[in-house]
């Protein structure tokens, strides 16, 4: 046990494997979702299903591992499908979202994961529209804000429920918190 920890920076081999597997799953979900046509012709509105994985890791393993998985997913997806600009949007949205997810999850002591998810989705959209505003310097893009908040509530609820039921049926591995 201790030997395996030495080589992987404090992660056990098993945990590292599970986290890698979840990162790969998040990347697949992200890839498949980006192939779907957009339902609403408003930039920024999408399901954000990859966030299910972030929620699962946050709840099962904690904020540090969720950060690692999220960062790997964003950097890898930018390498495979994105551009520098989409990386900027994903990073700002993803990291601010994770910060809020972590805070709200602590506040709720791990209960009501769908509320955590909604707050995270709102945070994600807020961060992205702020970046859009900074990049275009057109105050008009802020008109999207109410639309993005409404969509965040719906998509956040959906991804939150997905995470809830996935957590219910996902087998637990050894060495897991909670």
């Amino acid at each position: 046990m201790n030997d395996s920890k030495k080589n992987t920076g404090g992660l056990s081999i098993q945990k590292l494997t599970v986290l890698s597997l979840l990162t790969a799953a998040a990347l697949m979900i992200y890839a498949i979702e980006s192939m779907l046509p957009t339902l609403v012709p408003i930039p920024g509105i999408k399901l954000g299903l990859a966030n299910v994985v972030t929620l699962i890791v946050l709840k099962r393993y904690g904020a540090r591992d969720a950060f690692l998985v999220l960062l790997s997913r964003i950097l890898l997806s930018a390498c495979f499908f994105g551009s520098l600009l989409s990386l900027l949007y994903s990073l700002s949205g993803g990291l601010f979202c994770l910060l809020i997810l972590w805070l709200v999850n602590r506040l709720l002591a791990g209960h009501f994961i769908f509320l955590t998810s909604i707050m995270g989705a709102i945070a994600h959209n807020l961060a992205q529209i702020t970046v859009a505003f900074l990049l275009t310097s057109v105050a008009g893009v802020l008109v999207y804000l109410p639309f993005l908040i409404v969509s965040a509530c719906l998509t956040g609820l959906f991804t939150g429920l997905c995470a809830h039921f996935t957590l219910k049926y996902l087998p637990r591995f050894e060495n897991e918190r909670s």
Binding site: L85, Y89, L135, T136, V138, G140, V143
Partner: peptide, 13 residues
């Protein structure tokens, strides 16, 4: 709503 092309930083209001 403005028409927005974020990659090309174009906004039509």
């Amino acid at each position: 709503l403005p028409i927005t092309c974020l990659p090309n930083r174009l906004v039509i209001k």
